[in-house]
Amino acid sequence: MPNSIERVLQAALAAPFYFGQILIQKTSTGGFVLSHRDDEGRNDLQTFRSTEDAIDIAKYDDAGNYRPLKTAPNLRRGWRLELATLAELKCALDYFYSGRLDVFVAWKSGQLHTTPLRQTLDRQSGMYRIAAKISDEQADRVVGDFCRSDGGCLRTILWKRDTRGTVSSTKLPSEKFDPDFDQAAARAPSSACAEATADKTTAATIPLLCQEACNLLIAECRKVVKGE
């Protein structure tokens, strides 16, 4: 019996779809082909066939730098991953964007809890405890800068700044909080955005959801508080 993630994938696979920067297509023989969405139509891609290849593809960006945040918009290009089964597809997507399918399924079934930034900050201990001292204005700026889809992170933010429901950052466009919006199509500044969306596909997307501030953002808040 397919589990809930496989059911979500099966439904999405009615047509090619995007998951972050990845384009997923079904082949005529029942397999799957994954590639970078900006490589669509290229025929000079290096072909890989094992789910574990996804770990290596996701590890470094095009310049060879380690990618500490897998949902940053810097997935490397030039590859094509061919997989035979739905289970392999699920596994590979989990290597590319770890945990994101699980979180999406939890969200769809109404089981996802989100945690306000202030609560995440207040929970920290050790060297990160000091991060909780960040002011609202500073937090507004850091989140606006660090999490932005054009150059920061492709997740859709579901958490608020505090328990009163304050928006996580006024510096981010409202689409950043909309799971229906394709974050990878966001381009700065606005004119490029219009072009990018116009000539690009209308493929469906499974959003990369952010239910709680990540450790990298907390580290960034700490830096701001320490004036680094």
Partner: peptide, 20 residues
């Protein structure tokens, strides 16, 4: 799950379907 990588320890709360 990892403290400094993805999936995070917080993501781990959603990794296992309580039905199965």
């Amino acid at each position: 799950a990892f403290w400094k990588e993805e999936p995070s320890l917080r993501d781990a709360l959603f990794l296992f379907d309580s039905q199965s």
